[in-house]
Design a protein around this nucleic acid. Structure first.
Lengths: 342, 342
DNA sequence: TTGTAGGCGTTATCAT
DNA sequence: ATGATAACGCCTACAA
């Protein structure tokens, strides 16, 4: 009766064995034809491929995983926080990573972690359910990061980490700021003002560098008296000074500052973009929906995380990619500033 | 040298074989001790369990999957749409499902689909990478649904479908509306008004039924002249009528209507909740952040999707759960109405 | 209660 | 170029 059992199974469950028998070749040949590894005669291969196609056969991924000790799964860590605001970010991460995965025949599996509790991640690692992990910047303590290291589990961080040797990818804000500043410079001969945040913040520094680089590339020098650090607390003064100097363009280093700037300008009756053009180095929905929609630098999360997925799979494939990686930002042109370059 | 290879491997890769040998029992015994299936002597079992614990051994899930032809993975379908608004919903779905999965030793794998393209889903099904699927209400055409049926892939729908035999779970809005209305009835002897939408909409109907049920349970009769269908187009009249009649409570059937109602009341100088108490049968962030935050019926997506996960796994476990399932809504009390019951 | 052996469906290593 | 056969690590029917 064991036999009958098998016969029944073979009737509907198509496996390499069945295919091999029906085609009167060996499993090995079938396997090779499918994977493309190892030599197979053209004819034989085509025959197998055609047959498989006609049957709609798809290899069993679990068997493949076991045999190759490779799961073809990559894990993505997302936080379970109450914060609704970051949902779009994480959703885009998942979509991006999944896009990269699917393209290279991987699947995406989830690990939901909360403040200091990454049991879910451990499950994935312990059970060897994934070949690698994608981390997003939310683990302040870096516990997961060092955990993954201890476990020799390959991983990629979306975001930045100074820890050497951590594969990471971040949006290239410096480059973006440079690009956008350059565009403004072309329209504002008297210079471009920068309304920045605290000078000692990493991102702020980065944005400033991009801003400064644009000047350099244009053969100009930054006029530091129009770079307002901690501008939030003294917007009115800053804006007055800018307007008085006849400067036509101002960049805000993030959306919060920018929103306040727009409000102040409105109250002052200063028309944007006619009298002053404004951009933000960081995009947000509020900026898009503002009275006068604000041109800003957009971090394309899907694109970024797709590259993260590709990076991870490259690592898994034994390639030796760069440790630090960057994804270009894009400029979202809205009415507060339009490039006249094209 | 094959032998040496094996010895090396055994040194770091702990498998049942290794454990069995070190403990001088058979793999079978180890397996049984772990799974709890089949009889094992108490002593033996404890010995094995302790040893495993001390080693930090975790069974290889791929091997388990192959042997048991069960992946212990469940797939969740999420859409890749531009709509940012629904991100929180899907994120909560993922978190909820993952919570249920993890609790029962399953993992969650993603399928990202877009308008009419569910290749990603097919991958999961074809490669037998999942044991079941969770669908969320976004497939208008029902293509995925019928595809899964054809493939004999168990699935659960988050939302409602009239198609018979589709395992589904939805929030119990009728029940929630009833509960909330009942609470209001206790505070408003002259009755509770309902500002509804189009009478022919499914949800509207449902909400009305809940509303009506509360009256019934209280031994009262609905006064249909205070049920305003299509109220959006005649809010002013409706509100005047309500106020004139001395009614102290009004329910709006959704957030959009409610927001408008709140605006009108503000313009009229009618104080909420002092003069009129207001609730919404559907929650939204705007309602929470409103001038006067509005008490409303909240669909707990995490909870709902967690139950969806449990439902699916029940099915996979061969239990025979109900086809149609409901998850209770919760009332979020805010200042526009407070229950005096507790 | 415990052990033996075969099977799950691939991939990889040898031969031929 | 192709095939036999042994892994991969676990589960389970059957035997003892």
């Amino acid at each position: 009766m064991r036999n009958m059992d098998n016969r029944l199974r073979n009737a509907d469950k198509i496996t390499m064995d069945v295919i091999a028998k029906n085609l009167e070749v060996s499993k090995t040949t079938v396997s090779r034809a499918i994977s493309g590894k190892g030599r197979v005669g053209r004819e034989t291969r085509d025959k197998v491929l055609r047959y498989i196609e006609s049957l709609g056969y798809k290899p069993n991924s679990m068997a493949r995983a076991l045999a190759g000790s490779k799961t073809f799964n990559i894990g993505v860590v997302i936080p379970d926080t109450g914060d609704r605001g970051d949902s779009p970010f994480f959703k885009d991460c998942l979509i991006g990573v999944t896009a990269a995965s699917a393209r290279r025949d991987y699947d995406t599996v989830l690990a939901v972690v909360s403040e200091g509790n990454y049991g879910n991640l451990e499950r994935l690692v312990n059970g060897r359910r994934v070949d690698g992990i994608i981390l997003t910047r939310q683990d302040k303590s870096g516990k997961m990061l060092s955990y993954l290291r201890r476990q020799d589990m390959p991983f990629v961080l979306i975001g930045s980490d100074s820890d050497s040797g951590v594969y990471q990818i971040d949006s290239d804000q410096k480059d973006g700021c440079c690009e956008l500043t350059a565009k403004m410079l072309r329209q504002s001969p008297k210079g471009v003002a920068l309304l920045a945040g605290p000078k000692d913040m990493g991102v702020e520094r980065l944005r400033y560098e991009g801003y400064a680089q644009a000047f350099e590339l244009a053969g100009l020098k930054v006029n530091e008296s129009f770079v307002f650090w901690n501008s939030e607390s003294r917007l009115d003064g800053a804006l007055d000074k800018i307007l008085k100097a006849g400067i036509k363009c101002a960049a805000c280093s993030d959306d919060l500052i920018c929103l306040k700037v727009m409000e102040r300008l409105k109250q002052k009756g200063v028309s944007v973009p006619d009298r002053l053009q404004v951009v933000s180095f960081f995009d947000s929905e509020e900026l898009e929906n503002n009275d006068v929609p604000v041109t800003s630098l957009h971090v394309d999360t899907k694109f970024l995380s797709q590259k993260a997925g590709d990076l991870l799979i490259d690592i898994l494939d034994g390639k030796n990619p760069d440790v630090c990686n960057y994804a270009k930002c894009s400029v979202l042109y809205r009415s507060s500033f339009r490039s006249n370059a094209g």
